[in-house]
Simulated assay, not measured.
Amino acid sequence: MTDTARSDAAAPRRLDVAQTLLFVPATRPDRFAKALASGAHAIIVDLEDAVAPEDKATARDSVAAWLSEGEWTGAGSDTAVVVRINAADTDWFAPDVSALAAVASRLSTVAAERSGHYAQCPFGVMIPKCESEDPVHEIRQRFTQHGVAAPYFIGLLETPRGIVAADSLARAHSVHRFAFGNYDLGLELDASVGPEETELLHARSRVVMAARAFGMPGPIDGPCADFSTDGATEASAQRGRALGFAGKLAIHPRQLAAIDAEFGDSAEDVAWARRVVDAAEAAGGAAVNVDGAMVDAPVLKRAQRIVARAGR
């Protein structure tokens, strides 16, 4: 996918800097509003792993109905919504995509009439077992057939082929952001993965390297399944942040504070970053000193990232 195609893709851009992304089962519409109010930067309504085969159709209908109501897009809502669809090699993939494209079309009709262009899709789509551009193209085609630009894509890399394809996916900007699927990958590798997941270190680093090398937002680390043991989520988040991940999936609301604490920026960091960015802009490219230190390109880039996150 070209950069032009990517720029045309409708995307809730705050997903570029979302640090906490909370899963909620698609079979529990009673939890959708609670998840939105949890403080997560985004919720991921899950049509895949959280739904038994016999419940797929009902769950899809429930999600489509909830999205169509549009209450989640109301004023004051700072939480982005993402739907994890079923994998492209399943019988549920096409119905999932068709249902979401139809919902996006209904939600976006007014905006499209006003602008004369494809309307933006107000929710994102997570593609599980992302290994190539093929499912991206299929989703894009179905959405444009409904008169809606493609959604924000999160590619979930959770298979050996997905990890190996990270470079090519990032180079082509096939998806907007990567997420790392630690548990599925461990199973696929038939690895004996310990609590610190050192066995997956190479795969994690490869995802971060690919994203950073080709200008993608920092990738999202996989979840910590242990949400009841004190310190487990904190330790997992610290390891991910140290490797260069920029956010983390969560499976329970009680994990959000720990993830935010690790991936978030302090008020002092944000204030410093804004001083740096403002000083650099005022200098018009000339050398500048902030707080007694020279601002070079790497320092400015770090400051710009912090400011971008603060403006989420």
Rank of each mutant, 00 (worst) to 15 (best):
V24A: 04
V175F: 03
T79H: 04
R84M: 11
A273M: 07
A172P: 00
A179E: 07
R106Y: 03
L156N: 05
D265A: 13
G155Q: 02
E199S: 03
E158C: 02
T73M: 15
R13D: 11
A104E: 07
S62L: 14
A102H: 08
I259E: 01
A88M: 14
M209D: 08
D55C: 09
A52G: 06
A246Q: 13
F227P: 00
A250V: 08
G162R: 02
A52H: 10
L185T: 01
D78G: 11
A40C: 12
P135C: 08
L67E: 03
D16H: 13
A242K: 14
E197W: 00
F153E: 04
E54S: 14
N182M: 03
N289Y: 09
R6C: 11
D190E: 15
D134S: 14
P25I: 13
S236Y: 02
V24G: 04
I220W: 00
T159I: 05
G244S: 12
A279V: 04
G70W: 10
D78P: 01
G155N: 05
D78R: 15
H41N: 12
L185I: 06
A59Q: 04
A203E: 10
Q141V: 13
T20A: 12
F245P: 00
L185W: 05
V288W: 07
D96M: 09
A9S: 13
N86I: 05
Q120F: 07
S38K: 08
G194N: 09
E268D: 15
G240S: 09
T109I: 08
A246M: 05
T198Q: 12
A172C: 08
A213V: 11
H202G: 07
E281K: 15
F245H: 02
Y183R: 10
V17L: 13
F178Y: 11
T159D: 04
R275I: 03
Q145Y: 10
H173K: 15
S228V: 11
L36E: 05
V208L: 11
T109R: 13
D260P: 02
D190G: 14
H146V: 04
F153N: 05
H176N: 15
P195L: 12
T4S: 15
P219N: 10
G247P: 02
P12L: 04
A166M: 06
S205A: 14
